[in-house]
Write a protein that binds this DNA or RNA. Structure first.
Lengths: 152, 152
DNA sequence: GATGAAACCTTCACCCC
DNA sequence: GGGGTGAAGGTTTCATC
């Protein structure tokens, strides 16, 4: 399960262009297609590669307004967390969510069309979720860097 | 450039499994491979799909410790931002970074192996970056939700 | 949006170092 | 243990309907 420099090269290519053919990939990393495919299968089996996804421009689909939301619950007992997290997963606006240490319990990224839709989301959905005690919103201006993975 | 329900179905499949064959995809969305491929090409041409990436388990590569870092600069003049952002992009530990409104200028996600490596990153790299005035670290416990895109 | 044929890619057994 | 070769099978692509 140890990773060598060839695996790393393969990961570097696949993290940026997951749909390359084994032939092109082989050429780019300096290998023939067969061992290249073998390595990919091993990386998948070892769950180093956990899947492949299309990058989709949210703005083009009408969700161009993002907000980072910090949420504090009234209690941090397990049931409260489990219940809240279930609600989170069913919520299409929330695309990313972390359980945090520190003064807030959850940090999440919300995608909406505009500030008006965010207000609706805040007042009709988030504040009504089970156990929510306080909410803080931070609005990003622009994404500076987006990297699928750390490879060095 | 308008998106219909079939396009949405295609995006839903591709966002989760970018390496499906056109044949499988066609079957799953109820189409034959040719119009399916045509729609994908159009979604790519319209830059609704901006690319494809492998999902890589950072923990398995030795970067299992993540930290959200809020950074404030001493000045918000354009040159300062440009210079800082250039440094950010060259920094392998920083996998995600947003320019923010509010009390901090940048929010970023840092991937390191452990707390010791984070200390090194903080004291030797981040604090020495041009214009950095203050830093606040928030440590996540666990990722609750991760969704490539919002599709509904 | 579907069909069919040509070109291409993936995969496997097998060989090699 | 890992990489290469070639042939079989499957997939993509394009003109055409």
């Amino acid at each position: 399960m140890a990773i060598d420099e060839l695996d790393r090269k393969i990961l570097r290519v696949l993290s940026v262009d997951a749909r390359v053919s084994h032939q092109d990939l082989a050429e780019r990393v300096g290998l023939s297609p067969t061992p290249c495919a073998r390595r990919i299968r091993k990386l998948e089996a070892d769950q180093i590669i956990t899947g492949y996804g299309a990058r989709i421009d949210a703005g083009k689909l009408g969700f161009g307004f993002s907000v980072f939301v910090s949420v504090k619950l009234d209690q941090q007992v397990e049931n409260r967390l489990v219940e809240f997290e279930k609600t989170i997963r069913d919520c299409p606006e929330i695309v990313d969510c972390w359980l945090m240490t520190g003064s807030f319990d959850y940090l999440m990224l919300v995608l909406v069309s505009d500030l008006a839709e965010y207000e609706q989301f805040l007042t009709r959905r988030l504040t009504r979720m089970p156990g929510v005690a306080s909410i803080e919103s931070s609005v990003p201006i622009r994404r500076v860097k987006e990297q699928a993975a750390r490879l060095r």
